[in-house]
């Protein structure tokens, strides 16, 4: 693995911006990456022909993360969470993981508050999109861009 390390260092030296790129080129696998198209398609599958409105949703995720393996994320949606007017589901998508549909949480009036939190993986810098599905059939969204830097002096990946 020394070789990979050299490459990583080399790329890393050519500028901070290269750090993300270094990570990608080092990943010992090459799945078909979810392209922005896949992101749009995945969202479309959930939203259908409904309009995607901006607002009501807050996506709380750090703009710059040191390591993409565990990235804390929160989604909060403004809603009274009553039987008549509530969030039915929260969906999270990303742009560049092999698969764009990160999670789907089903809620209801019993939730009291439409707020969830989890830790996600991000292989590289990319866009994250949260979509809230309301009981009246409307969809609301918020997005965020996250820059993933990489940890220095990481272990050899394959020992």
């Amino acid at each position: 693995m020394d070789q990979a390390l050299t490459r990583r260092r080399f790329l890393a030296r050519s500028g901070a911006g290269a750090a993300g790129a270094a990570l990608v080129s080092l990943m010992p696998f090459a799945p078909a990456e979810a392209a922005p198209d896949d992101l749009a398609r995945a969202i479309k599958e959930v939203v259908g022909s409904a309009r995607l409105n901006t607002g009501k949703v807050t996506l709380d995720i750090a703009p710059l993360v040191e390591n993409g393996n565990t990235v804390p994320m929160k989604v909060m949606v403004e809603s009274p969470m009553t039987a008549k007017d509530h969030v039915k589901a929260i969906h999270v998508f990303n742009e560049k993981n092999p698969q764009p549909y990160v999670l789907n949480a089903t809620l209801g009036p019993r939730a009291g508050r439409a707020a969830i939190a989890t830790h996600i993986k991000l292989r590289e810098s990319q866009k994250i999109v949260a979509v809230a599905e309301f009981s009246d059939g409307t969809f609301w969204t918020a997005g965020a861009d996250v820059i993933v830097t990489i940890a220095a002096c990481v272990e050899d990946l394959l020992q």
């Binding site: 890393a12 390591n67 940890a151």
Partner: peptide
């Protein structure tokens, strides 16, 4: 200072054992 996106810490052993995100 920065090294490939990471801040070089002072190397204090205050938190060990650690959950390192890199190691998962």
């Amino acid at each position: 200072r920065k090294l490939a996106g990471a801040t070089i810490p002072q190397a204090h052993p205050t938190g060990y054992p650690i959950y390192r995100l890199e190691w998962q």
